[in-house]
């Protein structure tokens, strides 16, 4: 029995009861708590193969990001997936949660990394979408649907990910607190920065690429815009929550946060719109609920992919409080 077949057998067919898939438990709360006590299964682990000439890597879902990075580093490449705890966070978990890391501005969102996905569906069958190719439009794009689905449509078992050349250099610079450095102006002036982060006092800039280009951007863009010191890396995100803000509204949102919660700490990803903040600050950030039509599409998709609701029961990719409240009212009715 192959590792995939073994995993499928663990999930079992319809009738085998509620089941949940466990990764590194680094984002376990996402999507709400599980209802009942579903049986726990784990996806297989291990890097199946890195093909530098194709710029792809095939990896089983429970492989940690650290193990993945080690495997692709040997071939001079990287995969654009990030997590706070790479020794614990798994490839499958990071994809299923769909939350990007602080380098999203330069490396792109999580969803762009996935080329082929193999998962176990609610019938206990092995299902595949996409292809181990960097370009492919064969069939509907179920890979995008799986990213961020929080294991509610199927449990990822094995994936093929896009690789990039490992850059010659990655550098991080921090502006002196309360200096003149304007994070928004820097975002516009830098060419393909890895990240521009702002906490209201300091700006962190991540630069990557060829050494000559990194040096040129430090000299030509950073130095004229304030006083900087080189640092090890980005700051640890502050605050337990993250909010998703349209780029055009980010500055106004940060002004509102500063005005309402003066002592509250936050970190904003400029040019991306992810805001890491405290619960107090998060209340100031507008978060319109998804429309009724979108909620209805979610219901129909779930109904078709998992009619018994046995995969991650109680969890939903729709995490807006109003939607979750309506869902729990519906469940208890």
């Amino acid at each position: 029995m192959t590792a995939l077949e073994d995993f499928a057998a663990q999930v079992g067919p319809v009738g085998a009861g509620p089941v949940t898939c466990v990764g590194g438990r680094t984002q376990w709360e996402l999507g709400g708590g599980l209802t009942g006590a579903p049986r726990e299964v784990m996806a297989p682990a291990g890097v199946v193969g890195h093909q530098p000439g194709e710029m792809i890597v095939r990896v089983r879902a429970a492989t940690t990001l650290a193990a993945l990075d080690e495997a692709t580093a040997a071939g001079g490449q990287i995969v654009a997936l990030e997590a706070d705890q790479p020794e614990r966070a798994t490839v499958g978990g990071v994809l299923a949660c769909g939350r990007s890391g602080l380098r999203r501005l330069g490396r792109g969102p999580v969803r762009d990394a996935l080329l082929e996905a193999t998962w176990v569906n609610a019938d206990g069958e092995v299902v595949r979408a996409g292809a181990p190719l960097v370009k492919n439009v064969t069939g509907f794009d179920l890979c995008r649907l799986m990213v961020g689905s929080i294991g509610t449509l199927g449990f990822l078992a094995e994936v093929v990910l896009r690789c990039h050349p490992r850059p010659e250099r990655e550098e991080w610079w921090r502006s002196e607190p309360d200096s003149d450095a304007d994070a928004f102006a820097l975002y516009r002036a830098l060419y393909r920065p890895l990240a521009v982060l702002w906490d209201g006092r300091s700006v962190w800039v991540g630069l990557t690429g060829y050494g000559a280009d990194v040096d040129a951007q430090v000299r030509g863009v950073l130095e004229p815009a304030g006083r900087w010191s080189q640092v090890e890396g980005p700051p640890s995100p502050v605050g337990e929550l993250r909010r998703s803000v349209p780029a055009a509204e980010l500055r106004a949102t940060l002004d509102a946060v500063s005005a309402s919660c003066p002592g509250s700490s936050w970190l904003a990803e400029i040019g991306v719109g992810v805001l890491h903040c405290s619960a107090e600050a998060a209340r100031v950030v507008p978060a319109p609920p998804p429309g009724a039509g979108v909620v209805e599409l979610h219901r129909r998709i779930k109904e078709r992919f998992d009619p018994e609701g046995r995969l991650n029961p109680g969890r939903s990719p729709l995490t807006h409080p109003q939607v979750m409240a309506a869902a729990s009212r519906g469940a208890s009715a």
């Binding site: 998703s244 055009a248 719109g273 992810v274």
Partner: peptide, 18 residues
């Protein structure tokens, strides 16, 4: 309906991507 959004992490499944 509007699928996806101008913010980086719209709530729910990536229906835009689908």
């Amino acid at each position: 309906v509007v699928l996806g959004g101008l913010d980086p992490e719209p709530d729910g499944l990536d229906l835009r991507g689908a």
